[in-house]
């Protein structure tokens, strides 16, 4: 029997992301959804494609002094500096909560040295309940590690190789937009064994309080996120899709289903929702519903028919 294209086909939104089958392509972006429990009162976590948790390091980190955030036109700057409970406390105290839900859990990791990335990966791989690892080589708000790895193809490849060697879980490498040519980094991590790439992390920015003649953030600079970065993110996703064969996860300023669809049509295999969660705690739910409505309206039976359906001349 032919499926009625005007009803919701179970699994219509499903995507296969390097062997990880997700209910739908909508994930939460690291650092914007805590460890999931913070948003449980406002969202049905079971409905999400995946939850990407706050960046984890080997030991707990205190992070940067406040003020850490500042709203800017159509966006916000943050300099949280990867404050986190540490990978062991995550497994003991945060992961059991997430396991109650039928949702993929992606652990975002961060290290100051390659060895630290390796050890965090090892610990997470042995803990039941993590479905994939997202390697943050792109945080602009810490002095050591992070973006230093993400800005050089060789360094990015070394981190990727180290993580790859330590786990059978899918490895997603998260890229920074603060580089001249993002495709170069994407290709380097692909060759080093990454199963997918996600982009973009925040764009380094700054803002000044003219009355006090001081920077608004204690860290002086911070990472720009939110609607303001979307066109830049989309352009970079488009460039990277054309330069690698592995799946690309689109991130940056996605606030509505229409925003998410722009990335999916361009060819992103999935999207992550970040700052939009702060603006509207149920944003992810509305985006999932909106993508589904769009597919019904355009009689698109499955995600494969939508992803990468962008038409360009020449």
């Amino acid at each position: 029997m032919e499926a009625d294209k005007n009803t919701v086909v179970p699994g219509r939104l499903a995507v296969d992301l390097c062997g990880l089958v997700l209910k739908n392509p909508v994930m939460t972006a690291s650092g914007t959804f805590g460890y999931g429990e913070e948003y449980a009162p406002f969202c049905d976590l079971n409905r999400l494609g995946a939850i990407v948790v706050k960046g984890l390091s080997l030991e707990p980190r205190a992070g940067n002094p406040p003020p850490r955030i500042m709203e800017t036109r159509c966006g916000m700057l943050n300099a949280v500096g990867l404050q986190n409970v540490g990978v062991r406390a995550f497994i003991a105290k945060k992961l059991p909560f997430l396991r109650q839900f039928n949702v993929a859990v992606i652990a975002n990791i961060f290290g100051e040295t390659i060895d630290e990335y390796r050890r965090v990966t090892e610990i997470l791989t042995h803990a039941a309940g993590v479905n994939a690892i997202e390697v943050n080589i792109s945080c602009p708000n810490v002095k050591k590690g992070g973006v230093a790895f993400g800005a050089h193809p060789d360094a990015a490849a070394s981190v990727t190789e180290a993580v790859r060697g330590e786990t059978d879980l899918p490895v997603i490498v998260k890229l920074t937009p603060n580089v001249t040519d993002i495709t170069e980094i994407a290709q380097a991590v692909e060759s080093a064994g990454a199963d997918a790439v996600s982009l973009i992390n925040t764009l380094t920015g700054m803002s000044v309080d003219i009355e006090r003649r001081r920077p608004h953030l204690a860290n002086v600079t911070g990472g720009l996120s939110g609607p303001a970065v979307k066109p830049v993110a989309l352009r970079m996703v488009w460039q990277v899709i054309r330069s690698v064969k592995i799946p690309v996860i689109g991130i940056g300023g996605i606030s509505t289903a229409a925003d998410a669809l722009e990335f999916l049509i361009t060819g992103a295999s999935a999207v992550q929702i970040g700052t939009a969660n702060f603006i509207h705690p149920a944003a992810t739910m509305e985006i999932i519903d909106g993508i589904e409505d769009y597919m019904i309206r355009h009689r698109i039976g499955c995600m494969q028919d939508l992803l990468g359906s962008l038409q360009t001349d020449g």
Binding site: Y39, I69, F278
Partner: peptide, 17 residues
């Protein structure tokens, strides 16, 4: 008081020492 983004404990933006 501190500047807030999420208000629910997720973003770690509003900390005090």
């Amino acid at each position: 008081e501190e500047r807030m983004a999420c208000g629910v404990g997720a973003c770690l933006g509003c900390v005090v020492a």
